[in-house]
Amino acid sequence: MSMNHYYLLGRSGLRVSPLSLGTMTFGKEGLYGGLWGSTNDVSRALFDRYLDAGGNFIDTADLYTDGSAETLLGKFLEERGGRDRVVLTTKFSYNSAHKGDPNGGGNGRKHMVRAVEASLRRLRTDYIDLYLLHTWDRITPAEEVVRTFDDLVRAGKIRYAGLSDVPSWYAARAQTWAEAHALTPLINLQLQYSLVERNLEHEFTPLAQTLGMGITAWSPLGMGLLSGKYRPSEGGFQGEGRLSSAVGGQQMGLFTERNWKVVATLEKVAKELGRDMSQVALNWVATQPGVGSVIIGASTLKQLDGNLAALDFTLPPGLRQQLDEVSAPPVPFPYSMFSQPHQLVLQGGAAVGDKPTGYTVPVSTAQASVV
């Protein structure tokens, strides 16, 4: 894998980089901007470095730094030029600008249309390549969301649509409704995925592969726990990153015995490969089934360069197995029933299984190189 090889996102013709630039750190406004946001100059340097490396997939949201991330991206894209080369993704759901308005947030049509128009103004563009529902609001029917996505595509406001942070049944309902009514299909699921957060594997990975949605993984470094700032071998778990703050890893439930075993194994594997822990963690996510792209964030050029180098090597099978085993999540019901003994009973004792890997290539994982 490398940044100058592009892959189809889901069952679509949209080609994206295996690493996507996340812009949650662009700008100093708002709560998150105040905690770890970057100045305009640093944000511009990160933007240019990513594109110069061959990346084309940029992720933002109207929530990020109270809209400043979109505003800065719009300015940077206008100044640099080449808008059509960039696959620009933004998201809607949160009520960040219309306090007290019950329709100023959520995933209903009224807010969705207003949100896309506001994002277009901030981004200084007349279309968004990939528009995502940011978070399930537990209220709006999937049918309403899908129909509005379709209307926005037909109006030329967006090119593709997807979902972020929704239950698997909701994603399945939305995609099936789109298919049944010949509406714009969803091509992307944006979900948290890392060595310390693998719960999506039970349902989302097969869902995405079956229904044609490529997964883009956010927080691939486990909120920073896998960044290399926290090393059990160096006398403790406090580290030097933000997870050591008063509202940090302990309060977020990250500092667990299981997670420290994952970190220790990651450190061991990284030393054996002569790589940074963060690079190994990113490489593992980027090469997992169903993953179309991994969202990387950075607040310095050094961090970004290190993340971009995560594609420069291959994880040997033995070392990958160590990471797989130490981070394996518990298997919940009903998946715990689908073990080999149960399958043998279902098949009357006959060995029945899938054909070997490589016999067919799912459309959702097909590679497309662009010269």
Score class of each variant (00 low, 15 high):
97 A>V: 08
102 P>G: 05
92 F>D: 09
84 D>I: 02
119 S>C: 02
88 L>Q: 00
109 R>P: 15
106 G>M: 01
98 H>D: 12
121 R>L: 04
87 V>H: 06
90 T>L: 01
92 F>I: 07
121 R>M: 04
85 R>G: 11
78 E>K: 15
111 H>S: 03
118 A>D: 15
95 N>A: 05
91 K>S: 02
86 V>R: 11
89 T>K: 02
90 T>I: 00
93 S>V: 11
111 H>D: 04
88 L>P: 00
92 F>V: 06
79 E>Y: 12
85 R>A: 15
111 H>W: 09
118 A>E: 15
122 R>T: 10
121 R>P: 02
113 V>E: 14
97 A>P: 00
96 S>F: 14
107 N>A: 15
102 P>K: 08
111 H>R: 05
107 N>V: 08
79 E>F: 14
116 V>Y: 05
104 G>Q: 10
92 F>A: 11
118 A>K: 07
105 G>N: 09
119 S>K: 00
77 L>W: 01
94 Y>I: 03
82 G>M: 07
120 L>C: 10
84 D>L: 03
108 G>V: 08
108 G>R: 10
86 V>S: 11
104 G>V: 06
103 N>C: 03
83 R>V: 05
96 S>W: 14
92 F>K: 04
94 Y>D: 04
117 E>W: 06
116 V>S: 06
103 N>H: 13
96 S>V: 15
81 G>A: 09
109 R>C: 09
83 R>F: 08
112 M>E: 05
119 S>T: 00
104 G>W: 10
94 Y>K: 05
94 Y>L: 07
81 G>P: 02
104 G>H: 09
100 G>P: 04
122 R>F: 12
117 E>R: 12
99 K>I: 10
90 T>F: 01
118 A>I: 02
108 G>D: 13
79 E>R: 15
91 K>Y: 01
110 K>M: 05
97 A>K: 10
113 V>C: 06
79 E>N: 13
92 F>N: 06
99 K>Q: 14
115 A>P: 03
121 R>H: 10
83 R>S: 11
80 R>A: 02
93 S>T: 15
114 R>C: 02
82 G>D: 07
87 V>Q: 09
82 G>T: 08
106 G>Q: 01
112 M>G: 03
110 K>I: 08
105 G>H: 09
105 G>T: 06
102 P>D: 05
108 G>W: 13
96 S>H: 13
98 H>R: 13
82 G>Y: 09
120 L>S: 09
111 H>F: 13
106 G>W: 00
119 S>I: 00
121 R>G: 03
116 V>W: 02
99 K>E: 14
82 G>A: 07
77 L>S: 08
90 T>G: 01
104 G>I: 05
111 H>P: 05
105 G>A: 10
100 G>N: 06
84 D>S: 14
119 S>H: 01
122 R>L: 12
78 E>Y: 11
86 V>L: 14
108 G>M: 12
95 N>P: 01
91 K>I: 02
101 D>Y: 06
91 K>Q: 04
110 K>V: 11
96 S>G: 12
106 G>I: 00
